[in-house]
Nucleic acid binder design. Structure first.
Length: 570
RNA sequence: UGCCGGAUAGCUCAAUUGGCAGAGCGCCUGACUCUGAAUCAGGAGGUUCUAGGUUCAAGCCCUAGUCUGGCAGCCA
């Protein structure tokens, strides 16, 4: 068979100096070198029955990334072969997610259901070749005769029907003469195969269910194993990349294509992505959402792309993450840390800086005139001069972060403490003179003095301070809601539960904390999706439910904090 | 006990035809700094799962074993 015939694309090899190397790319280069294929064509084939998650992002970047690198084509194809689970809602959501990720399918958007006629014809071909038969076994009987992992199955009593009878029965299955589950079309392979997948797998089942795209045209629907290779073949895909669980299905993928004698793509499998402290299955997403353990598929704690997007993750960060984890055949669990590091790296370069105080302590600048205020210049992004500057109001009463003051400073603490001078970022040097407490001994405010000569944050006499603190003017600050997130589960493996419990038992009751912050007024007109760095605190993204009357920020990720590490080490 | 995979630094991965085990991230130290951030420099970190074998030479090839993932939906 000529595997290079269907398309004649120029061969472009991925020889850029920084192009990644892995076993799949190596295999593709070899295929190109040996002439098995003369171009590269991949596909991402989601079933429209759920929201995409970070694991799908990995698959998209493998499929799309490799196609791009080799100057090839990339198809987005909905594998919509089971109408009982699928819906247009998911098609729309997936389209949005893939587009957001940055994978451009151009005009190559396909639906497996568009190939149902062709698949049916091929099934008829296989029947005519004596390679497929209609089986009347019930689902229960079928599973009983399939055998086990260690023992062979037994042949169906309907296995040796005549071609004519099979053709007739199959046509009547299609015509809707039989109820759901009454019969299947099965491939005639080998009931004793050590690979259970090869024990006369079913190709079609009867489902009197309308399809979200085909309506009531069909009442028989193809199985994954039967359909997938055909879809790849029809589209001229060269490399059908999928996760390891399909490795055992490859012989069947090859068998159908070989028996049909049609264009034969190559399936290659890779390890799927696993992350600790979360779950990544469609069924569990549905449970978490339906039982209100999370606030929808786009809850910022969810590993869905919609959730990560709402959390503030950028597609660039996700792409970088996928690049860093690479592709392998060994199962592995990637630390969240790596994903977080990727967003920090991306957001550091692009996020607008802003000052916000989350746990305020009031500071009165005793030598600053009452009723006066002024605007100081602040840099929007030190990593990007083009981002410009903004004005931030300074006045007599400020809020500082509680963590930035210690009445009795521990060793190596160089923030504000009685008698010590520090800098207020873009403001003035201040010195703490007095700690005001209530009757319970709790600190209620600090009395400080400022040095008017240090306006903007520099001392004309060149004296240095050891700390620069963020602050907001009490009178001008806007109050906003902030939502802090932790892992959804308390255990690395949510399935690690006591007898009789399930993964829900491991939900982290503290995965979401709603609190407040006081933030500089420059963010008054911010809109959902805007991302900021709250200086010295972390990256935050404006939630979709945020309004100018009620600002809501999701913390994407905190900044690295080496002081916290020092403290924790004690 | 069947079949198909996997095992190299804390984590993720590399290592042409067998030829001195490397990188990124993390960690430690230093420099710099109006974010204890970022950036830059340096450093530590390995019985390549185990036991044999082939070879001048084995992470790689062979044998046996250990551990580990997937597979018995009319799901994909």
């Amino acid at each position: 068979m000529d595997n290079t015939a269907s398309q004649t694309e120029p061969v472009i090899e991925a020889n850029e100096p920084n192009s990644p190397s892995d076993f799949i790319r190596d295999a593709i280069k070899q295929d190109l070198a040996e002439g098995r294929f003369n171009h590269v064509h991949t596909r991402f084939p989601p079933e429209p029955n759920a929201y995409l998650h970070i694991g799908h992002a990995k698959a998209v970047w493998i499929d799309y990334g490799i196609a791009k690198e080799f100057g090839g084509k990339f198809n987005l194809r909905f594998d919509d072969t089971n109408p009982t689970r699928e819906d247009q809602e998911f098609v729309d959501a997936i389209l949005e997610d893939v587009k957001w990720l940055g994978a451009d399918w151009e005009e190559n958007l396909y639906f497996a259901s568009d190939y149902f006629d062709q698949m049916y014809e091929w099934a008829v071909d296989l029947i005519k070749k004596g390679k497929a038969y209609v089986c009347d076994l019930s689902p229960e009987e079928l599973s009983k005769t399939r055998g086990t992992l260690t023992s062979p199955g037994i042949e169906s009593p309907y296995r040796d029907r005549s071609v004519e009878e099979n053709l007739d029965l199959f046509a009547r299955m299609k015509a809707g003469e039989f109820p759901d589950g009454a019969r299947t079309l099965r491939a005639k392979i080998d009931m004793t195969s050590p690979n259970i997948v090869m024990r006369d797998p079913f190709m079609y089942r009867i489902r009197h269910t309308d399809h979200h795209r085909q309506g009531d045209k069909w009442c028989i629907y193809p199985s994954y194993d039967w359909a997938h290779g055909l879809e790849d073949s029809i589209e001229g895909v060269t490399h059908s990349l999928c996760s390891l669980e399909y490795e055992i299905h490859r012989p069947l993928y090859d068998w159908f294509l070989e028996e049909l004698g049609i264009y034969h793509p190559r399936q290659i499998e890779f390890a799927r992505l696993k992350l600790p402290y979360t779950v990544m299955s469609k069924r569990r997403f549905i449970e978490l959402v339906n039982d209100n353990h999370v606030d929808g598929y786009d809850d910022p704690r969810m590993p869905t792309l919609a959730g990560l997007r709402r959390r503030g993750y950028t597609p660039e960060a996700i792409a970088e993450f996928c690049r860093r984890i690479g592709i392998a055949k060994s199962d592995s669990t990637i630390e969240w840390h790596l994903l977080e590091d990727c967003v920090r790296e991306d957001l550091n370069k692009r996020a607008q800086r802003v000052m916000a105080v989350m746990n305020p302590i009031k500071v009165v600048i005793t030598n600053y005139p009452e009723g006066q205020s002024e605007m100081v210049d602040a840099i929007n992004n030190p990593e990007n001069a083009d981002a410009g500057t903004r004005k931030v109001p300074f006045s007599r009463e400020l809020y500082l972060e509680q963590d930035d003051f210690r009445e009795v400073p521990p060793p190596k603490f160089f923030r504000l403490t009685p008698g010590r001078e520090v800098r207020l970022r873009y403001g003035y040097f201040i010195k703490c003179n007095e700690v005001i407490k209530d009757e319970n001994g709790e600190i209620v405010e600090l009395h400080c003095t400022y040095d008017p000569e240090t306006r903007g944050g520099n001392a004309p006499d060149g004296r240095k301070v050891k700390a620069t603190l963020h602050w907001v003017s009490a009178e001008h600050a806007l109050e906003a809601e902030v939502r802090l997130y932790e892992h959804l589960f308390v255990k690395e493996d949510p399935d690690d539960v006591p007898e009789g419990k399930d993964y829900i038992y491991n939900l982290n009751p503290e995965s979401k904390t709603i609190t407040k912050c006081w933030i500089e007024p420059s963010v008054a007109d911010t809109v959902p999706g805007d991302r900021y760095q709250f200086e010295r605190l972390g990256y935050f993204c404006v939630d979709k439910s945020s309004t100018s009357q009620h600002l809501i920020f999701n913390r994407t990720v905190a900044l690295r904090d080496s002081w916290a590490k020092i403290e924790k080490a004690k």
